[in-house]
Design a protein around this nucleic acid. Structure first.
Length: 717
RNA sequence: GGGUGAUUAGCUCAGCUGGUUAGAGCAUCUCGUUUACACCGAGAGGGUCGGGGGUUCGAAUCCCUCAUCACCCACCA
């Protein structure tokens, strides 16, 4: 079959993809391989579009999936998307805000309906983008973290934790985002260094004297219920047990001694606000201090803060307090001070530590086996340096706040009775027709918890919930544990660690064997690619410009060993030229094969020239090396090697050498034809996982029985 | 405060366990329009491998130290 003059990615890729899909090539089928290769995709959020990280990540996965498929292994790549609780809820709220509405105008039920509509619109877009990238996922296995079966899995895990005593509900200081109106786990808070002041404030001591405290948050003084000093601090020994007078409000608060206080920091005296600071909360617990809440869930002052401040914004009040302190001569000095301030990872509002009632998962027991499997190497990180990062975090893990005060997500299956009892029920959660009754007093006046679970609570179940767990499905027994996980390093704790302990807890097995942490893609200035900052590069624009194959190949060219990369289009340009080179070399090779009748290596062996044998040997060596590199997840070297082999060995040397022999009808013509035929076919196979479209397109013109995507990977000697 | 990584040609980066003239792509320059490809071919220039010490017969590669940058973790107000 003739090849068109040029390879036109935009015109040809979609058709090729469709034919793969139509022929069912993405389905798990064993073609004589040794063991299944299974990947569950890191589910993209249904909030938007693919970014460079996705492009790289999914290229990596597709390369391995295609490679394994060609090796004959039964291969399953499970696609899907994540409901992404807060992120998606925020998107829908923004959409409503444009119409001047809030979620409260709609009410919970309608708001959730709206969000499902959003999901129905965006999910196909994102999945479509994965198809554009050439991802060979089995679309019949597509899952969503809130689909019916998945929801069942989530409820199952909640109930399991509860019954095992791993879940508890408590009034704690949690990270609160006043804008999103929800609590956040520690991992969802982003810390940012900020230049601030350390305000030194003088408190008078009852009966004479004074004590100066240092604080970065003067507005919280309205909720002070003590001043703490270190018990060994000689400066303050004599005043311990006395009372200080809170400036402005004039309230009496005790001066107490607590080891937590560092005598060397600030003035060595700390104002204690148990309701608004986690450390102060602890001190408060130890000394039975009152917790006065002065900031509310919206970040405004409560009536407790005093009439002049009530209802005002926390920062506005900070300014006002400073002025008042100055006027009253309470302010001693303002010392410049750099410290880290927490922000919401979804909307970037400054986090307010607030006392709220939340559900927590106890972590100390559940992480133990998850530490063990990594220590013993059952789960391996690539590059290996992430092992230590993982273990350090797991060794110092703290309890996980899993309740969120939003509407989009898995509602907590807990019911509260007037009698004070809590009932956690799988049945009630799964069947809305049932009438919940208190298991203690029998009352039917139960109120369901309005909160939903942390989005990561559900994504933690991804590797097994997508395969059917908690049901004992054939998929689960065939494909679990999965083989490989590729992801970005910023969700190592948020997601990877949680999948590992969840996998072990619920299935008794590790969720995957190998974790590949891919390079982080930065822009040319070395800045994080961010849509909001306008520093992003859209992979779809690149695909449009260079074609999918070139984009994939060019990205892998730059990935190094998980090293950060400053993205540059140079490598895509190079790849684009390479695609063109492959196309033209193939076209030319075929021109030289018009009168060729396939012969075997044995029959032609004696005719082969030194050059023929050289390139055939190099081909074999290259196959071997590509295998070796892919086994190590060293994509960059695999890609470089193939480029070098095909361009410099095959095109520059072999084709140049053989074309003369073929044109001049030399006695070694048939040997020459055998050589180029063999090298081209095998090269297309080797290149296919990286550049699936152009290779399949050429292959389809070469009278082969099977499509390239399911052809047998070159065997090496 | 702890941790991790980076610093190699004008630019983006390779260089594994130390060993002859330090590599690639892009850019630059010279030559080449022989029927696959000018998105090509042949060739050239360009690097005291961040600074300073050390180990070694020999270091970009190992050790120490300094500097700069980046990222992660962290309840010192």
């Amino acid at each position: 079959m003739e090849m068109p003059k040029n390879f036109k990615p935009k015109e040809m890729e979609a058709g090729i993809y469709q034919s793969w899909a139509d022929n069912g090539y993405f389905k798990p089928v064993s073609r004589g391989g040794s063991k299944p290769f299974v990947v569950t995709i890191p589910p993209p959020n249904v909030t938007g579009v693919l970014h460079m990280g996705h492009a790289l990540n999914n290229t990596v996965q597709d390369v391995l999936v295609r490679w394994n498929r060609m090796k004959g292994n039964e291969t399953l790549w499970v696609p899907g998307t994540d409901h992404a609780g807060i992120a998606t809820q925020n998107k829908v709220e923004q959409k409503l805000a444009a119409k001047g509405k809030t979620r409260f105008d709609l009410g919970r039920e309608n708001f959730i309906k709206e969000t499902w509509k959003w999901k129905e619109e965006y999910e196909p877009r994102i999945l479509g983008q994965l198809k554009t990238m050439g991802c060979s996922c089995d679309w019949d296995h597509t899952r969503f973290t809130m689909d019916e079966g998945y929801s069942k899995a989530v409820i199952e895990t909640f109930v399991h934790y509860y019954e095992k005593g791993y879940l508890y509900r408590g009034n704690r200081i949690t990270n609160w985002c006043p804008r999103c109106g929800t609590s956040l786990s520690d991992l969802e808070v982003e810390h940012e260094e900020r230049q601030d002041n350390l305000w030194h404030i003088r408190y008078e001591i009852e009966g004479g004297g004074e004590i100066v405290v240092a604080t970065t948050r003067p507005e919280t003084m309205l909720g002070d219920t003590a001043i703490a000093v270190n018990p060994n601090d000689k400066r303050y020994k004599s005043v311990i047990g006395n009372f200080a007078i809170l400036p402005i409000l004039g309230r009496k608060i005790p001066i107490i001694a607590d080891d937590y206080v560092d005598a060397k920091f600030g003035t060595g005296a700390v104002k204690v606000t148990p309701a608004h600071d986690p450390n102060d909360f602890e001190i408060g617990e130890r000394h039975n201090l009152e917790k006065i809440v002065v900031i509310d869930l919206e970040g405004n002052m409560t009536p407790e803060a005093g009439e002049q401040f009530v209802g005002k914004d926390r920062y506005e009040v900070r300014e006002a307090i400073i002025i008042l302190l100055e006027e009253g001569k309470w302010l001693v000095k303002a010392e410049p001070h750099t410290h880290a301030v927490g922000h919401c990872y979804r909307c970037h509002t400054v986090i307010e530590p607030l006392l709220t009632l939340q559900w927590f998962v106890k972590m100390n027991e559940i992480v133990k086996p998850a530490i063990e499997v990594v220590r013993s190497g059952k789960v391996k990180f690539h590059p290996a340096k992430w092992t230590k990062v993982y273990l350090d975090w797991m060794d110092n893990i703290r309890d996980w706040c899993v309740s969120r005060q939003i509407w989009w997500g898995h509602q907590i299956p807990a019911w509260y009775c007037e009698c004070g009892e809590i009932t956690v029920s799988k049945e009630w959660a799964l069947d809305p027709k049932l009438t919940p009754k208190c298991h203690e007093c029998g009352s039917a006046k139960l109120k369901r918890d309005e909160d939903v679970l942390d989005t990561w609570f559900s994504s933690a179940l991804w590797p097994f919930a997508t395969l059917g767990w908690p049901e004992k499905t054939p998929d689960l027994s065939t494909f679990y544990p999965t083989s490989f996980l590729s992801t970005a390093r910023d969700i190592l704790y948020l997601w990877v660690a949680r999948m590992i302990f969840s996998g072990i807890e619920f299935t008794g097995q590790i969720p995957f064997e190998d974790v590949y942490i891919h390079a982080t893609v930065f822009n040319s200035e070395g800045k994080r690619m961010s849509k909001s900052l306008g520093t992003g590069v859209d992979p779809l624009v690149l695909i449009d410009k260079y074609g999918t194959d070139a984009t994939r190949f060019g990205l892998l060219w730059q990935v190094a060993q998980g090293q950060d990369m400053k993205f540059s289009e140079d490598s895509l340009l190079m790849s684009q030229r390479f695609v063109n080179k492959i196309w033209n070399a193939s076209k030319f090779t075929k021109m030289n094969l018009t009168d060729y009748k396939i012969v075997s290596r044995e029959t032609i062996e004696k005719e082969l020239t030194k050059e023929d044998k050289q390139i055939l040997a190099k081909l074999d060596k290259t196959s071997k090396e590509v295998d070796r590199y892919l086994n190590k997840y060293d994509f960059q070297h695999a890609v470089e090697l193939l480029y070098d082999f095909f361009w410099h060995d095959y095109c520059d040397l072999c084709i140049e050498d053989t074309k003369v022999r073929i044109r001049d009808n030399e006695s070694s013509k048939l040997a020459a034809q055998y050589t180029i035929h063999t090298v081209l076919l095998e090269s297309l196979k080797l290149l296919h996982p990286f550049m699936p479209f152009v290779t399949e397109s050429i292959w389809s013109t070469m009278d082969q029985d099977a499509a390239l995507i399911i052809s047998k990977w070159p065997e090496t000697k």
